[in-house]
Design a protein around this nucleic acid. Structure first.
Lengths: 112, 112
DNA sequence: TTTCGTTATATATTATCAAATATAACGAAA
DNA sequence: TTTCGTTATATTTGATAATATATAACGAAA
């Protein structure tokens, strides 16, 4: 069989999306760049979209996922909290496990 | 934890989507209705979209997934092939297994 | 108190996708 | 040979999402 199986997973809170692959990429970029502007730029994403995503994440998460400051040296910045880091890590682990699981599933599938 | 994990799976052939949840729903509706027009209507989908989806499925699958006839008694119709039925069944089985797997994964996840 | 790069926000424009509409071709049966 | 409901296809319209642009607020440091 020449078919491949793919998947996307996401985490919901109260029926709204909390975290998906795009948001996780953005959170990782924030962790690396220390700034939402730079993180957005590094992903080729508009600042507005990045800000909206992070706003939604923080509103729905049980604890703050990022912190930010305006003004001062460097103009301000954004950082991942420890909780945010553990969320990102959990998401990526489950995602990879899911890929493995699905590869196994399709390998054991027989079609007519 | 009050988070829920969701997923979507799909099958690709040569990098193009062969089958996802929407296409499987449509295939099942065709099997029930015996007609693409009626199947589309039952799902609140335009005929054009339904036709495009089925066309893509048949072009990418290794064997025909549906058959159709134009004209004649009843104007014609569309049916699922045996191969199509086995594809639908395989997809749904793997999808349900995936849900179970992910529920188990998130249950065993500890966040800070 | 001026400069700087950032966060935060609103508005307008553009691009993309979905839906609606129209029409030809078809073949069995009356 | 006319009718019927379907498949098959193109074109137009409308809705939605993404992008671009603009601007205020902020606070440390020079």
């Amino acid at each position: 069989m020449d078919y491949k199986i793919k998947s996307r997973i996401w985490i919901e809170a109260d029926g709204d999306i909390l975290l998906g692959e795009g948001r996780v990429s953005l959170l990782k970029a924030i962790d690396e760049e220390g700034s939402l502007t730079k993180a957005a730029k590094s992903l080729g994403m508009s600042y507005k979209k990045a800000w909206s995503l992070i706003d939604a994440v923080n509103k729905r998460a049980e604890k703050p996922v990022t912190t930010s400051s305006i003004g001062g040296k460097g103009g301000g910045g954004a950082q991942l909290t420890a909780y945010g880091k553990s969320l990102v890590e959990a998401f990526e682990t489950i995602n990879e496990n899911c890929w493995e699981f699905l590869d196994e599933q399709i390998k054991n599938t027989k079609l007519k």
